[in-house]
Amino acid sequence: MVKSVLIGTNGSQWSQSAVKLGLSLARQLGVRVTLLGIVDVQGLAHGEPLPIGASAFKAERDARLLADARQRIEAALESAAAQAAEAAVEFTTRFVEGSPEEELGKEVQRHDLLIIGKRAVPRSDHDPAPSKTLTATLHHSSRPLIVAGDEIPDSPSVLVAYDGSRPAARTLAGYVASGIYANNGITVMGVGNDVPEITGHVQRAVDFLESHGRSPKMRIVPVGRGIADALVTAARDESAGLLVMGAHGQPRLKEALFGSVTRAILSRVPVPLFVDH
C-alpha cells in the first residue's frame, strides 16, 4: 500500500494537473504528500560557448532566469500547499535547486509513488523549451510513477494495457501493490493481430488480478491504426481514469529518431498513466 506520495510541481499547466490528481489520490488513500518544487539550475545557467565580451550578458541573463524560476516555483508550491490544506491532506513542501531529474530521483526514495505532469509542448516562441525531466524519470525512477493527464473522472475505472512483457508484468504488480482505485472497475487490454497469443498474455494478467480479489474484464483489439489510437479509444469506451502500462526502454538514438510508444501515448491519451519501470 502507498503510504506517502511525492508530487513534483513547477507551476506549468500539466504540473497543476499532477497536484490535483495527487491530492485526490492522497485523500482517497488517506496518506500524506510531499510537494516538491525544483529550480533547474543546470538547465537555466549551464555552460555554453561565449564570444569575447559577452560573458556579462550571460551572467545577467542567467541571474534573471534563475530569479524568475525561483519566484515561479515558490508560487507553485504556495498554490499547491493551499490546495492540500483545502483538501485536508497532510502535506509538506520542499523547495530545492539542482537538476530536476537528480533531485526527483533522490527525493522519491522517501516515498512509495511519484506523480508528475506531462511534458508541455511549446505553442509559441515565448513558451519554455520542453523539459527532459519526464523522459529521464520514466527511464530511471526507482518508484512507480503516475504521469497526470488532463482529465480526472469522478468514478474512474482502470485500464491495464498488457503485452506479457517484463515491464508490463512489473507495472501491473506495482499498481496492485499501490492500492490505487482498488475498488473500481478494471479492464485488461491486449493490442495485437495474433489473437490467441495476445489472449494468452492478457489471461495471465487477469489471473493475477483475480488472485488479488479483483474482477477484471478482458479486451482484445487489433493494432489497426496503431497502439496509441487503440488505447485512446479504449480509455474513452471504458471511462478510464488511469492507464496502467509498462514503459519499454529502448536505445536513445532509436527513440529520438522514431519516438516511443510510451511517448506517443503520453501525448495523446488524456488519462493519467501509471508506469513502474
Binding site: E48, P49, G53, F57, E60, R61, L65, P122, P128, A129
Partner: peptide
C-alpha cells in the same frame, strides 16, 4: 554563422532569452 562568431550575436541572444524568447541552441 554561430553565436560565438561575433560578440553581439550572443548579446542579442541573451537579451532575447531574458525577454522569454526561446532561442535555438548553439
Amino acid at each position: 554563422m554561430s553565436y560565438i562568431g561575433n560578440a553581439p550575436n550572443f548579446m542579442v541572444k541573451s537579451i532575447a532569452e531574458t525577454s522569454r524568447i526561446r532561442m535555438p541552441s548553439f
